[in-house]
Amino acid sequence: MRVNFTVNGRQQEADDVWEGESLLYVLRERMGLPGSKNACEQGECGSCTVRLDGVPVCSCLVAAGQVEGREVVTVEGLADFAKQRAEHGCATRACGTSLQDAQQWEAGPQHSQTGEGAELSPIQQAFIDAGAVQCGFCTPGLLVAADELLERNAEPSDADIREALSGNLCRCTGYEKILDAVRLAAARQEEAV
C-alpha cells in the first residue's frame, strides 16, 4: 500500500508498504531516517519514541497505515521543531506547518562530520552537556519524550521527570545524568524566558 504523512514538517510518501510494517520500519528503512531506534519492538524500551500529532508514541507499535495523513516528528526534526515552538509558541499540529514552510523545507546545513555547529534544541544540548549520552542508543527516544515533557511542564519536579521518562530504558547511565540533563534544559528554558 501507499502511505502519505508528514515527517518533520515535510510531506512524505512511502510505496509498497506491507500491512504488517510499523511506522518505525517505514521511517528507518524506507525514508532514510534511522535516528529512531529499534531495541525491543514491543513498546517496552521507548528507543523508537516519536511524536504522532504531538503525542509521544512508540513507533514500533504503530502500524504504518495508521499514520496516513498525520504528522510525525522524529529526533532528526527535533531541533527544528523546538525552534519553531520557541519562535511561534507552538510547533504541534494545533498551529500546523504552513504549506509555504513545508514546501521550503530542506535538510539542515550539512555539518562537518563531527556535527559541530549543528543547531540543537535545548534538550539535545543539555544531554551533551550533562553527560547523559553514553552509547546513545536510547538517546533519540529519550530526547523526544523529554522535549514533550518540557513542552507541557516547564518546571518538572524530579518525580515528574521520572514519570515522564519511565517508558524509556537506558542501560548505560543509571539515569542520573539524564535527570540532570532535563533539569538543566528546564533551567535554561526558564532563564531564556
Binding site: 534511522p34 529526533v75 556535527g115 551533551i128 549520552v133 546513545g136
Partner: peptide, 14 residues
C-alpha cells in the same frame, strides 16, 4: 555527542 543527539550517529543496525 552531537551526532548522537541528532540521530545522525550510525549504529550497526543503521
Amino acid at each position: 555527542g552531537t551526532l548522537k543527539v541528532t540521530g545522525e550517529f550510525a549504529y550497526s543496525s543503521d
